[in-house]
Design a protein around this nucleic acid. Sequence first.
DNA 1: CTTGTTGCAAATCGTTTGCAGGACA
DNA 2: TGTCCTGCAAACGATTTGCAACAAG
Lengths: 146, 146
Amino acid sequence: MGSRPNIKNRGVFQYCESVLSNNRLKKTKPRIAILEALSGNHCPLNVEEIYRKCPVKTLDLATIYRTLRAFEDIGLVQRIDFGDGSARFELRTDDHHHHHVICRSCKKVEKLPDCGISSLEKTVTRLGYQSVTHSLEFFGLCRKCK
Amino acid sequence: MGSRPNIKNRGVFQYCESVLSNNRLKKTKPRIAILEALSGNHCPLNVEEIYRKCPVKTLDLATIYRTLRAFEDIGLVQRIDFGDGSARFELRTDDHHHHHVICRSCKKVEKLPDCGISSLEKTVTRLGYQSVTHSLEFFGLCRKCK
DNA sequence: CTTGTTGCAAATCGTTTGCAGGACA
DNA sequence: TGTCCTGCAAACGATTTGCAACAAG
């Protein structure tokens, strides 16, 4: 929810750590590992994928779920739903706000440049809503899939 | 996916029934009941809500799930995801394509006029995607909730 | 030291599936 | 009548929770 300073990969970690301490969340191994898994990726990961990418020996799925929820609450992470039954998560640092195209067949995920739905967002604000966010996903068949 | 003739509430049922027969789906009591539940509503319903609205004595959740999937396949129904763990469904008759605002606090749902994200959709098409659809939901706090 | 955090196991919730009986065209 | 559809029960996958042991500030 807060401001999201423009951070280069270099400083992503310091930024994350400062957000943690600002919110009185302890800096633990599981949390660091999850941040690493998310930061090393170009597209949103689900819990299973995060689990596989985490180098921590004993790391429980429950911990990942709890951690992601906590990160979401403080705005460190963005929850994304592709409508396939599992939630995805993306680090919410600087990068401009964006959305995705998902191939209905091969499930490839591509980022779209910019957001560009400001007009609808204005309508929502005009309806009296505050702290407005949105979720937008495109689905289609990519070139390879037909 | 097919064309969606402009239907007034009056004729919604005849329309639905014709879609059923066009797709060789039998007109059964559970299916009629589910269509009634959906047509009598202004906002998308989840399976639990449909279940409660259905006057049929013995109607199983499994039947509702199967029916909704079948309806979705023939374009009679639109699946909508509010990211809260359960899928919603909306009758897909005439009404112009639209999206929703959901209050983060009281969960109130409002329709938004028109869609208006054609520019992003063009970008997606330009990337080579075919049969492009999208899912867009806004979240915020409505007037009453602060 | 004190509270927040974790791992483990069990519970829960939404959704799907197999199957035998029943209803529509 | 033959096939599609349904109810029931059981299976499933994603996510949550209780609790006692543990670790960060």
